[in-house]
Design a protein around this nucleic acid. Structure first.
Lengths: 200, 200, 200, 200
DNA sequence: AATGAATGAGGGTTCATTCAT
DNA sequence: TATGAATGAACCCTCATTCAT
């Protein structure tokens, strides 16, 4: 008689809810301790469920990892959509990054696994790599637009993207939903840092 | 008859060279694939040596990890020393970060393990944590000095440090010594990004 | 579908029974072939179980060893309690030793590891050493009482205790529950030998 | 340039001396810490010799063990010879056991391995078993003679022999040449205990 | 659907043994 | 002969995964 954190009405919705609970908790644990430092025993224990039960909802550990990547990928796509405002490239970049970080903070578990690519099944890895490349290309596009419209300083766009990704992927190591700063606040500050730097 | 990549003159130097070769290759592998994704079999195979041989030079896997941390820590200390130039806090920060990145690029393997703290022996972890905290406090100090002398914009110093660390720790995932950009060039660009941002 | 030698009614009792079965078989093997000559593969194979299964019931090999020691220690304490009869020191010694041997023969596996102290975890070794010293001191006390009440010949008490311990610790090498002599019979004969010697 | 404890004149004698030094030290270590708890690294280190050097003098670790057994076996034979005095069976037994213990104390290392039979090569084990059986049969013969001539109480002779062996084989765990009691003194006391017991 | 026992592959570590120098 | 580096087999232990109930 497991104790799932959430309850739902229909049988089908219940199914999905349980699966989500597993993905969420696993993602959280992966983010904090790392994928390989987290055993499914840990995850099951936190959910007050037996380990075997997990396999009723997910195929294997790799699938969990893949799903976490998908969540982050989805957020990236969403951020680009929401960032399509009218304005200079710099303003679009600002809106996009801020939105991305805001979304990540709502489910911090998902994005802490972005560095875990080797753990993925080959075919899943292909998907993730493709999406991540697309994400980075999109960022580069915004940068190039900024070079053109003069709103962004000319720098090596790849380096800039790497700096973004590093800053963002490092978040799970220090951000906590219960911490001093709210998600949107963190998003605001990080984005400002990345766009305007420290020197005045 | 193993084939070590490097050769040396004296016996003693050879010993040290082999140990360094192991640390270097292991660090490189840890950086690229993660600590837990890298078996000592892999490391040994790359060095064309049997796994048992590794144990003539290192005590265990945890020691390798610790040594990698030590290298990065040493680089951090060195960066602070070399960054003690005359000038504003912003100039000092610039010099320090740039130097730090320059050093890291010379031995990129070492810094990719900075996120692997759980794998360390308890006593080693204490050392690493203490040093990392000192490193971050030092950065915060520079920032505060910059707030005072007016050379640095007032921002949350902790967030800024987290942004730095993320940017830097992400480097092993994309930087390659054989790549398009040299270490110093990467150092210059990343530092400029962090200090001056993207918006002009 | 492993085949445990014993079956039990309740689930909980089954758990304990399996653990006991492991400890018993391991103790038996340790006694006959020595701690280091016995791999957990051997133990698992004898129990017709995979090696991994053992770890559902015991933490590690050292714990098994420690538990064996505990059994023997417990028997020693029990022997002293049961030996507290009214009578001369010689009679008490006789009752105590006989009881000790009787108990040991009921679980011969346990006492064959008494010489394996180096394999123990440091903290467990401290316990075992403390208890063994207490056991030997108790025996010496009985001897000294015998010197006083005249029931025991004056001899070096430490040597006498060493002789006891040797005689007893050697038992696993020759005693078998299925052998010619029953446990109590062996206890009677050994005790008489130790107390009265061979010469008439 | 190894440092052997002993020096010798001829080349051949030197050879044998070195071999003996290895056997002695190994036997000592085996006795104190057990066969499997002693690595050849330990032995080599104590002799201030490299591990590889050992293999110039002994075939392998098993041979060392076998040689230790042989030494003890030889002592047993010698004890029987020297114990062939005129007198009752009890007196012969006394002389034999005392002599045996005296001899063992001169090279305490050798006898501490008597319980390590599983480590032996099959063919060596056959030799050792045969000799040990002969030794025990010889003791039983003396006992039976004592039953006849009335000098020894009628007891189960096998049990008595097991008691002897246990007492003797346990010696390496507590006897030290530098200890409070000399070898002959220990021999005297142990023998008296075994023959006359504790009760007066 | 939930359980938890069982499994087996994989990795870290030790150490006896070999071998080129 | 002495060395010590290298090897590989053996063992302990973890953990993702399966399966009978």
């Amino acid at each position: 008689m497991p104790r799932w954190k959430n309850e739902a009405q229909t049988d089908d919705a219940l199914q999905r809810l349980k699966r989500e609970a597993i993905l969420k908790e696993a993602g959280r644990a992966f983010s904090q301790r790392g994928y390989h430092n987290t055993s499914l025993d840990d995850v099951a224990a936190t959910l007050q469920v037996s380990k075997g039960t997990l396999y009723n909802y997910v195929r294997d550990k790799q699938e969990i990892l893949f799903e976490c990547h998908l969540v982050a990928i989805e957020m990236g796509k969403r951020a680009f959509k929401d960032g399509q405002i009218a304005g200079t490239a710099a303003e679009i970049l600002d809106a996009t990054l801020r939105r991305y970080i805001e979304l990540l903070t709502t489910e911090i578990g998902a994005c802490g696994v972005l560095m875990e690519v080797d753990g993925l099944r080959a075919q899943d890895r292909a998907v993730v790599t493709r999406e991540r490349d697309a994400f980075e290309r999109n960022l580069v596009s915004i940068l190039r637009a900024g070079f053109k419209d003069g709103s962004i300083r000319k720098t090596d766009p790849k380096i800039a993207v790497f700096a973004f990704m590093g800053t963002i992927n490092w978040m799970p190591r220090w951000y906590s939903p219960d911490g001093r700063l709210s998600g949107p606040e963190v998003a605001r500050q990080l984005t400002e840092l990345m766009l305007h730097g420290l020197v005045q």
